[in-house]
Protein backbone atom coordinates (compact mmCIF):
# COMPACT_ATOMS: atom_id res chain seq x y z
CA UNK A 1 0.00 0.00 0.00
CA UNK A 2 2.90 2.27 -0.64
CA UNK A 3 1.99 5.20 -2.83
CA UNK A 4 4.97 7.25 -3.86
CA UNK A 5 5.06 10.93 -4.56
CA UNK A 6 5.64 10.13 -8.26
CA UNK A 7 2.36 8.26 -8.39
CA UNK A 8 0.51 11.17 -6.77
CA UNK A 9 2.05 13.56 -9.28
CA UNK A 10 1.18 11.28 -12.21
CA UNK A 11 -2.48 11.19 -11.20
CA UNK A 12 -2.55 14.96 -10.98
CA UNK A 13 -1.53 15.31 -14.64
CA UNK A 14 -4.54 13.42 -15.98
CA UNK A 15 -7.12 15.26 -18.03
CA UNK A 16 -10.67 15.84 -16.86
CA UNK A 17 -13.08 18.66 -16.18
CA UNK A 18 -11.94 18.80 -12.54
CA UNK A 19 -8.26 18.71 -13.48
CA UNK A 20 -8.74 21.66 -15.80
CA UNK A 21 -10.24 23.91 -13.13
CA UNK A 22 -8.03 26.74 -11.98
CA UNK A 23 -5.71 25.65 -9.15
CA UNK A 24 -6.71 28.66 -7.02
CA UNK A 25 -10.33 27.60 -7.26
CA UNK A 26 -9.51 24.04 -6.28
CA UNK A 27 -7.52 25.25 -3.29
CA UNK A 28 -10.30 27.57 -2.11
CA UNK A 29 -12.83 24.81 -2.66
CA UNK A 30 -10.82 22.39 -0.51
CA UNK A 31 -10.36 24.96 2.26
CA UNK A 32 -14.09 25.77 2.21
CA UNK A 33 -15.06 22.13 2.50
CA UNK A 34 -12.56 21.41 5.27
CA UNK A 35 -13.35 24.48 7.36
CA UNK A 36 -17.06 23.74 7.12
CA UNK A 37 -16.45 20.08 7.99
CA UNK A 38 -14.50 21.03 11.09
CA UNK A 39 -17.22 23.53 12.03
CA UNK A 40 -20.27 21.31 11.63
CA UNK A 41 -21.44 18.70 14.12
CA UNK A 42 -24.18 17.29 11.94
CA UNK A 43 -23.86 13.82 10.42
CA UNK A 44 -26.22 14.67 7.58
CA UNK A 45 -24.07 17.62 6.53
CA UNK A 46 -20.93 15.47 6.67
CA UNK A 47 -22.61 12.83 4.54
CA UNK A 48 -23.68 15.48 2.04
CA UNK A 49 -20.14 16.88 1.83
CA UNK A 50 -18.65 13.42 1.37
CA UNK A 51 -21.12 12.68 -1.44
CA UNK A 52 -20.21 16.00 -3.04
CA UNK A 53 -16.47 15.18 -2.86
CA UNK A 54 -17.12 11.72 -4.31
CA UNK A 55 -19.11 13.20 -7.21
CA UNK A 56 -16.18 15.54 -7.94
CA UNK A 57 -13.89 12.51 -7.71
CA UNK A 58 -15.98 10.53 -10.20
CA UNK A 59 -15.96 13.51 -12.57
CA UNK A 60 -12.18 13.67 -12.27
CA UNK A 61 -11.73 10.05 -13.45
CA UNK A 62 -9.40 9.22 -10.54
CA UNK A 63 -9.59 5.53 -9.75
CA UNK A 64 -11.57 4.79 -6.59
CA UNK A 65 -9.11 2.16 -5.37
CA UNK A 66 -6.25 4.69 -5.56
CA UNK A 67 -8.38 7.19 -3.65
CA UNK A 68 -9.29 4.69 -0.91
CA UNK A 69 -5.69 3.50 -0.59
CA UNK A 70 -4.46 7.03 -0.08
CA UNK A 71 -7.04 7.72 2.61
CA UNK A 72 -6.21 4.45 4.41
CA UNK A 73 -2.54 5.41 4.35
CA UNK A 74 -3.12 8.56 6.42
CA UNK A 75 -5.95 7.39 8.62
CA UNK A 76 -4.15 5.71 11.57
CA UNK A 77 -3.24 8.54 13.99
CA UNK A 78 -6.59 10.34 13.83
CA UNK A 79 -8.49 7.07 13.67
CA UNK A 80 -6.74 5.99 16.86
CA UNK A 81 -8.02 8.99 18.80
CA UNK A 82 -11.52 8.58 17.35
CA UNK A 83 -11.68 4.88 18.25
CA UNK A 84 -10.81 5.68 21.86
CA UNK A 85 -13.71 8.11 22.33
CA UNK A 86 -16.39 5.56 23.37
CA UNK A 87 -14.16 4.47 26.26
CA UNK A 88 -13.14 7.88 27.55
CA UNK A 89 -16.21 10.04 27.13
CA UNK A 90 -18.58 10.11 30.07
CA UNK A 91 -22.27 9.61 29.46
CA UNK A 92 -24.96 6.98 29.24
CA UNK A 93 -23.17 3.67 29.73
CA UNK A 94 -24.07 1.08 27.12
CA UNK A 95 -21.65 -1.74 27.94
CA UNK A 96 -19.29 -2.47 30.74
CA UNK A 97 -16.14 -4.30 29.75
CA UNK A 98 -13.52 -5.97 31.94
CA UNK A 99 -10.76 -3.78 33.50
CA UNK A 100 -13.30 -1.10 34.38
CA UNK A 101 -13.78 -0.02 30.79
CA UNK A 102 -17.15 1.37 29.82
CA UNK A 103 -18.63 2.21 26.47
CA UNK A 104 -20.79 5.32 26.50
CA UNK A 105 -23.43 6.41 24.06
CA UNK A 106 -22.07 9.97 23.88
CA UNK A 107 -18.62 8.56 23.31
CA UNK A 108 -19.76 6.46 20.36
CA UNK A 109 -21.53 9.47 18.85
CA UNK A 110 -18.55 11.72 19.35
CA UNK A 111 -16.08 9.13 18.06
CA UNK A 112 -18.18 8.62 14.96
CA UNK A 113 -18.38 12.37 14.46
CA UNK A 114 -14.59 12.74 14.68
CA UNK A 115 -14.11 9.79 12.38
CA UNK A 116 -16.59 11.07 9.79
CA UNK A 117 -15.01 14.51 9.89
CA UNK A 118 -11.62 12.95 9.37
CA UNK A 119 -12.86 10.99 6.37
CA UNK A 120 -14.42 14.07 4.73
CA UNK A 121 -11.31 16.20 5.35
CA UNK A 122 -8.98 13.52 4.02
CA UNK A 123 -11.22 12.96 0.99
CA UNK A 124 -11.06 16.67 0.20
CA UNK A 125 -7.28 16.81 0.56
CA UNK A 126 -6.70 13.64 -1.45
CA UNK A 127 -9.00 14.98 -4.16
CA UNK A 128 -7.10 18.28 -4.26
CA UNK A 129 -3.72 16.62 -4.56
CA UNK A 130 -4.98 14.06 -7.06
CA UNK A 131 -6.27 16.69 -9.46
CA UNK A 132 -3.70 19.45 -9.01
CA UNK A 133 0.04 19.19 -9.69
CA UNK A 134 2.19 20.20 -6.73
CA UNK A 135 3.69 23.27 -8.29
CA UNK A 136 0.35 24.71 -9.31
CA UNK A 137 -0.93 24.33 -5.74
CA UNK A 138 2.09 26.27 -4.53
CA UNK A 139 1.82 28.89 -7.30
CA UNK A 140 -1.82 29.42 -6.58
CA UNK A 141 -0.98 30.02 -2.92
CA UNK A 142 1.28 32.84 -4.02
CA UNK A 143 -1.37 34.25 -6.32
CA UNK A 144 -3.77 34.21 -3.39
CA UNK A 145 -1.45 36.45 -1.42
CA UNK A 146 0.86 34.12 0.48
CA UNK A 147 4.01 36.05 1.64
CA UNK A 148 6.58 36.37 -1.13
CA UNK A 149 9.55 34.85 0.69
CA UNK A 150 7.64 31.84 1.96
CA UNK A 151 6.08 31.31 -1.45
CA UNK A 152 9.52 31.30 -3.02
CA UNK A 153 10.89 28.80 -0.50
CA UNK A 154 7.80 26.63 -1.05
CA UNK A 155 8.05 26.60 -4.82
CA UNK A 156 11.77 25.77 -4.70
CA UNK A 157 11.15 22.99 -2.18
CA UNK A 158 8.50 21.49 -4.40
CA UNK A 159 10.90 21.52 -7.32
CA UNK A 160 13.61 19.69 -5.41
CA UNK A 161 11.30 17.30 -3.59
CA UNK A 162 11.41 14.87 -6.48
CA UNK A 163 15.20 15.10 -6.69
CA UNK A 164 15.50 14.02 -3.08
CA UNK A 165 12.99 11.25 -3.35
CA UNK A 166 15.07 9.94 -6.24
CA UNK A 167 18.25 10.30 -4.18
CA UNK A 168 16.64 8.38 -1.33
CA UNK A 169 15.49 5.69 -3.71
CA UNK A 170 19.00 5.36 -5.15
CA UNK A 171 20.59 5.08 -1.72
CA UNK A 172 18.05 2.47 -0.69
CA UNK A 173 18.50 0.48 -3.89
CA UNK A 174 22.24 0.41 -3.46
CA UNK A 175 21.89 -0.63 0.16
CA UNK A 176 19.49 -3.35 -0.88
CA UNK A 177 21.89 -4.61 -3.53
CA UNK A 178 24.37 -5.12 -0.70
CA UNK A 179 21.73 -7.15 1.16
CA UNK A 180 21.02 -4.44 3.74
CA UNK A 181 17.73 -4.81 5.56
CA UNK A 182 16.58 -2.53 8.40
CA UNK A 183 14.55 -5.26 10.07
CA UNK A 184 17.11 -8.06 9.75
CA UNK A 185 18.37 -9.44 13.06
CA UNK A 186 21.53 -10.91 11.51
CA UNK A 187 23.48 -7.74 12.15
CA UNK A 188 23.58 -5.77 15.37
CA UNK A 189 20.95 -3.10 15.93
CA UNK A 190 23.49 -0.37 16.52
CA UNK A 191 25.19 -1.14 13.20
CA UNK A 192 21.86 -0.97 11.35
CA UNK A 193 20.94 2.27 13.07
CA UNK A 194 24.28 3.71 12.06
CA UNK A 195 23.65 2.84 8.42
CA UNK A 196 20.30 4.64 8.56
CA UNK A 197 21.94 7.61 10.21
CA UNK A 198 24.53 7.71 7.40
CA UNK A 199 21.71 7.63 4.85
CA UNK A 200 20.10 10.59 6.57
CA UNK A 201 23.45 12.33 6.82
CA UNK A 202 24.00 11.85 3.08
CA UNK A 203 20.59 13.34 2.34
CA UNK A 204 21.42 16.26 4.59
CA UNK A 205 24.78 16.78 2.98
CA UNK A 206 23.35 16.48 -0.49
CA UNK A 207 20.69 19.04 0.30
CA UNK A 208 23.28 21.42 1.69
CA UNK A 209 25.50 21.02 -1.34
CA UNK A 210 22.61 21.25 -3.77
CA UNK A 211 21.51 24.40 -1.98
CA UNK A 212 24.92 25.97 -2.49
CA UNK A 213 25.10 25.01 -6.17
CA UNK A 214 21.60 26.27 -6.83
CA UNK A 215 22.40 29.53 -5.09
CA UNK A 216 25.53 30.07 -7.19
CA UNK A 217 23.72 29.30 -10.39
CA UNK A 218 20.94 31.69 -9.37
CA UNK A 219 23.57 34.31 -8.60
CA UNK A 220 25.06 33.81 -12.04
CA UNK A 221 21.63 34.63 -13.43
CA UNK A 222 21.49 37.91 -11.52
CA UNK A 223 19.63 36.79 -8.40
CA UNK A 224 19.88 39.49 -5.74
CA UNK A 225 17.78 38.10 -2.92
CA UNK A 226 14.57 39.50 -4.36
CA UNK A 227 12.09 36.78 -5.03
CA UNK A 228 10.82 37.53 -8.49
CA UNK A 229 9.75 34.56 -10.45
CA UNK A 230 7.62 33.90 -13.45
CA UNK A 231 3.92 33.68 -12.77
CA UNK A 232 1.82 32.00 -15.33
CA UNK A 233 -1.25 34.12 -15.96
CA UNK A 234 -4.40 32.10 -16.07
CA UNK A 235 -7.77 33.82 -16.16
CA UNK A 236 -10.51 32.40 -13.99
CA UNK A 237 -13.22 30.95 -16.23
CA UNK A 238 -16.98 30.82 -15.80
CA UNK A 239 -16.84 27.13 -14.87
CA UNK A 240 -14.42 28.00 -12.05
CA UNK A 241 -16.81 30.54 -10.60
CA UNK A 242 -19.61 28.05 -11.14
CA UNK A 243 -18.06 25.39 -8.95
CA UNK A 244 -17.31 27.82 -6.13
CA UNK A 245 -20.88 29.11 -6.25
CA UNK A 246 -22.17 25.52 -6.24
CA UNK A 247 -20.06 24.67 -3.19
CA UNK A 248 -21.22 27.80 -1.37
CA UNK A 249 -24.84 26.96 -2.20
CA UNK A 250 -24.37 23.46 -0.78
CA UNK A 251 -22.77 24.78 2.38
CA UNK A 252 -25.25 27.60 3.00
CA UNK A 253 -28.33 25.57 2.16
CA UNK A 254 -27.31 22.74 4.46
CA UNK A 255 -26.55 25.26 7.18
CA UNK A 256 -29.95 26.97 6.73
CA UNK A 257 -31.77 23.64 6.71
CA UNK A 258 -29.90 22.54 9.83
CA UNK A 259 -30.55 25.87 11.54
CA UNK A 260 -34.26 25.64 10.91
CA UNK A 261 -34.30 22.21 12.40
CA UNK A 262 -35.52 20.20 9.42
CA UNK A 263 -32.90 17.55 10.04
Amino acid sequence: MNITIDKIEQESWKDSIIHSLDARIKLILTILIIVYTVYTTDFFVLLLLEIYVIILLLLSKISISYFVKRILMILPFGGFIAIFQPFIKEGLILYTLPFGLTVSYEGILFGTLLFSRLIVCLSAIVLLSSVTPLDSIVNSMRKLGFPKEMAMILSMTVRYLFVFFDELKNIRTSQKSRCFNIGSKKTSYSWRLKQIAYTIMMLFLKSFEKGETVYYSMLARAYNGEAISYKEESPIMKVDYGIIVLTLIIIFSSEIIRFNGFI
Binding site: M156, Y160, L161, V163, F164, I196, L203, F208, V214, N224
Partner: peptide
Protein backbone atom coordinates in the same frame (compact mmCIF):
# COMPACT_ATOMS: atom_id res chain seq x y z
CA UNK B 1 23.19 36.00 3.47
CA UNK B 2 20.56 35.71 0.73
CA UNK B 3 22.27 32.40 0.03
CA UNK B 4 20.36 30.76 2.82
CA UNK B 5 16.97 31.25 1.18
CA UNK B 6 17.61 28.66 -1.55
CA UNK B 7 19.49 26.62 1.05
CA UNK B 8 16.48 26.58 3.40
CA UNK B 9 14.22 25.58 0.51
CA UNK B 10 16.39 22.69 -0.57
CA UNK B 11 17.01 21.62 3.01
CA UNK B 12 13.24 21.43 3.40
CA UNK B 13 13.10 19.07 0.43
CA UNK B 14 15.84 16.97 2.06
CA UNK B 15 14.00 16.91 5.41
CA UNK B 16 10.86 15.87 3.60
CA UNK B 17 12.64 12.84 2.19
CA UNK B 18 14.25 12.10 5.57
CA UNK B 19 10.82 12.06 7.24
CA UNK B 20 9.73 9.29 4.91
CA UNK B 21 12.30 6.88 6.39
CA UNK B 22 10.56 4.83 9.01
CA UNK B 23 13.04 3.55 11.56
CA UNK B 24 12.32 0.53 13.79
CA UNK B 25 13.34 0.67 17.46
CA UNK B 26 14.40 -2.33 19.58
Amino acid sequence: HEKQIPLLAILAAGIFAIQVLNIPTP
